[in-house]
Amino acid sequence: MSTALSLFVTGTDTEIGKTLVSSALLRGFVREGLQAAAMKPIAAGAFELDGVLHNEDADQLDAASSVLLPPDMRTPYLLKEPAAPHIAAALENVVLDLERIVACHAEAVTRADIVVVEGVGGFRVPLTATQDTADLAVALNLPVVLVVGMRLGCISHALLSAEAIAARGLTLAGWVANRVDPDMTFPDENIASIREHLARAYDAPLLGIVPHLNPISAERAADRLDIPRLLQTLRHAQR
């Protein structure tokens, strides 16, 4: 049995910085001396480069990793259309099979000390007529890190996401506040409110506040994350 650590990164919505935070986590783990690999099991929005399909998010994750997984293992489902995964899959007559993803993950954790699995969209994005990304997180049975995009409405989105994660019997290992809207009013007060609620209800710590970065930098974002605390939580959850 592999002793590698792994976690599932989800978000309060799409376009709120899951890939940035996942990449920052990878950079942080590498700084801690770990062999770190990434999975983006389902990626919608592929482009061709030198005859090979690529996805921007998956490429960013690879750039932050110290162990590169084979593309078919890192991203078992690479879909061309930049749309919700069940829609993109239907256009290509692809069935998103969670068992295939679980098998790829089982192999991935034999190749690295830690594997960061980035979800797609928010926590309840449909994958098939009967399954969504929450079912994927359950199938992988991993602790979850929630990325909260700091913008108007983020408190409700954060609490609803945390509630959904807990309802599936998963551990919320912590959350990251990502300042996606630099003009947001009362960001500190919003962060304090989310912090209080998630700590009290789920014992989930704030792992860091990522400022609005221009240009985006996983290296700079990693400076803002409490990697040792997260590793401690992950190791405890694995016991």
Results as ranks from 00 to 15, higher is better:
157 H>Q: 04
47 F>G: 15
87 I>G: 02
224 R>F: 06
179 R>V: 14
204 A>R: 09
230 L>P: 11
98 L>S: 14
178 N>F: 11
198 L>R: 00
111 R>C: 12
36 A>S: 12
194 I>H: 01
39 M>T: 11
48 E>Q: 12
4 A>I: 10
172 L>D: 11
122 G>P: 13
163 E>S: 10
147 V>Q: 03
192 A>P: 02
213 L>E: 01
175 W>A: 00
182 P>I: 01
161 S>Y: 05
2 S>L: 00
113 D>N: 09
144 V>I: 06
43 A>T: 00
145 V>P: 00
141 N>E: 08
110 T>Y: 01
214 N>C: 14
29 F>Q: 12
119 G>W: 11
44 A>W: 02
137 A>T: 14
194 I>V: 11
142 L>F: 03
8 F>N: 03
212 H>M: 07
152 L>M: 10
42 I>N: 11
190 N>D: 02
167 A>V: 02
183 D>Y: 09
44 A>T: 15
168 R>H: 14
128 T>I: 07
69 L>T: 12
167 A>M: 09
141 N>S: 13
195 R>M: 07
12 T>V: 06
46 A>T: 01
170 L>I: 08
30 V>P: 09
127 L>Y: 06
227 I>Q: 11
141 N>G: 12
44 A>P: 11
147 V>T: 04
174 G>N: 09
228 P>S: 13
237 A>C: 12
85 P>D: 01
239 R>P: 06
193 S>L: 14
115 V>E: 09
22 S>K: 05
136 L>K: 07
236 H>R: 10
42 I>Y: 03
80 K>R: 14
128 T>W: 02
110 T>L: 10
216 I>T: 13
111 R>I: 03
220 R>D: 13
213 L>N: 01
105 H>K: 07
83 A>R: 10
75 T>Q: 09
95 V>D: 15
161 S>N: 00
213 L>A: 03
185 T>L: 10
60 Q>H: 06
117 V>W: 00
78 L>H: 12
157 H>G: 00
182 P>V: 08
100 R>V: 15
58 A>E: 12
38 A>F: 12
63 A>M: 08
133 T>D: 14
19 T>N: 09
86 H>S: 01
159 L>M: 02
94 V>N: 07
6 S>Y: 04
14 T>G: 04
176 V>K: 02
126 P>C: 06
79 L>H: 04
220 R>F: 15
10 T>F: 07
27 R>F: 00
99 E>L: 04
32 E>D: 06
156 S>M: 06
180 V>L: 00
180 V>C: 11
108 A>V: 08
212 H>P: 00
163 E>T: 05
38 A>M: 13
121 G>F: 01
112 A>Y: 05
53 L>W: 15
67 V>D: 05
26 L>K: 06
173 A>V: 08
124 R>P: 12
188 D>E: 13
33 G>M: 06
26 L>A: 13
214 N>Q: 15
158 A>C: 08
220 R>I: 15
198 L>H: 00
179 R>C: 13
69 L>W: 11
128 T>P: 13
